[in-house]
Design a protein around this nucleic acid. Structure first.
Lengths: 217, 217
DNA sequence: TAAAAGTGAGACACGGATGTCTCACTTGCC
DNA sequence: GGCAAGTGAGACATCCGTGTCTCACTTTTA
């Protein structure tokens, strides 16, 4: 049992990230304390949720800080961010599921600041020719955060080994976000090192090949 | 106003995908009907949520069907799936935020069936040499669904143009998931077509470079 | 026109989670 | 040992969302 506020918050994240509507009894039980003690530590449910959200945002802000995302090569910066953010992926998963649930203006402001920092990183990377410009920086930001949250969910549900998390996130995301010097047309280039049974279906041309006409940078 | 069950469900998705704890008043208002009529159409909140979830799973299953994911080249199959799933991205966003909230066994079963189909597609693609084997099929499935959900959120919040959705999803995901014939070492290869101010930070080697030692296929 | 069906607004009771309190118990300190 | 502090368990009261009902009004249909 831990009457520590931090330890209780940690336990609360574990419960709330997978079930945001969990009752206080459940959270207290997960923390190994009674509901009375939980109420002694946090004035109420609202305050608890708020502190969990605040903690998540602070951690993500700290990850952006330690990654120094505004310095150096954008790809290296993003890799540093992956390493810094993955340990708090569960917190990000909570934020992703709860980001619209806040009435508190300060939380929303802090949230937007972090998203803006992420956006700035991608915009800089696009300007420097590191990230693809066909994908908007806004979408890259959204997708990156969603994948961090996905890492958190996958780890929590045992579908992904924690040791593989940073690699899986960085490889998948960077593979799609990085501008590739060779192969400027990535569409419809099947690899086919193994014989592929091309049946009758593979003929219709997908609308996902179409590039958007307007873009930001 | 629409007393149509389908139209009301549509409106409910719009509200619930961004705020799963929305009250019935809010859902009714979003649908343009009164709470009384909402109760006449659906026995209760539980039934409404259940029907929304069922609708989402059925739509996703239909997307897998129309994409014929078990036929033809895996990459083409995934592109077809993108095209088929993107119109229902908001429904997927709801499912992503609510997938652990169901007590109903049939919903959970249906959910697992679809995830298994997705998993099978990636496994097949890996066997055929189309998808990267360094990323587990489970992670690819998770990431794909999370990105579909992210598409839904981004569109709903106006951060992504609906016309760009399919392209953005396909390019980002396939870029990271496809096995690339050339460039077998994707790490630490900065492009640098524009002069990059490499300051003091870019030295430490990221743990996200490390490949996992154990993998499935 | 008149009957029938459907809808919206409001009132009301119920249930469950929350918030608050008390009290017995344990732990740590003098 | 005795005191102080902290905790757990339980018993309440309260609040809020939900479910149900009624009634007036509108729209449709015969």
């Amino acid at each position: 049992m831990a009457t520590d506020r931090d330890t209780v918050l940690e336990a609360a994240v574990g419960v709330l990230s997978r079930r945001p509507t969990a009752h206080l009894d459940e959270i207290a039980r997960a923390a190994g304390i009674s509901r009375a003690t939980l109420h002694r530590l946090f004035p109420g449910r609202d305050a608890l949720i708020r502190e969990v959200g605040l903690r998540g945002l602070q951690r993500f802000a700290a990850a952006l800080d330690t990654a120094a995302t505004e310095q150096g090569d954008a790809q290296a910066a993003l890799r540093r961010l992956v390493d810094a953010a993955v340990p708090d992926a569960m917190l990000c998963a909570f934020l992703a599921g709860e980001n619209q649930l806040y009435d508190h203006a300060d939380i929303n402001d802090l949230w937007e600041v972090q998203i803006d920092r992420l956006h700035a990183l991608f915009l800089r990377g696009q300007r420097e020719g590191v990230f693809r410009i066909e994908l908007s920086a806004a979408w890259l930001s959204e997708a990156f955060f969603d994948l961090v949250a996905g890492i958190g969910w996958a780890i929590q549900d045992g579908r992904l080994a924690p040791r593989d998390a940073a690699f899986s996130l960085a490889e998948l995301f960077l593979g799609g976000a990085l501008r590739r010097p060779e192969a400027p047309a990535p569409v419809a280039t099947p690899v086919a090192t193994t014989p592929v049974a091309t049946t009758a279906v593979a003929t219709t041309h997908s609308t996902s090949d179409r590039k958007p006409e307007t873009d930001t940078p």
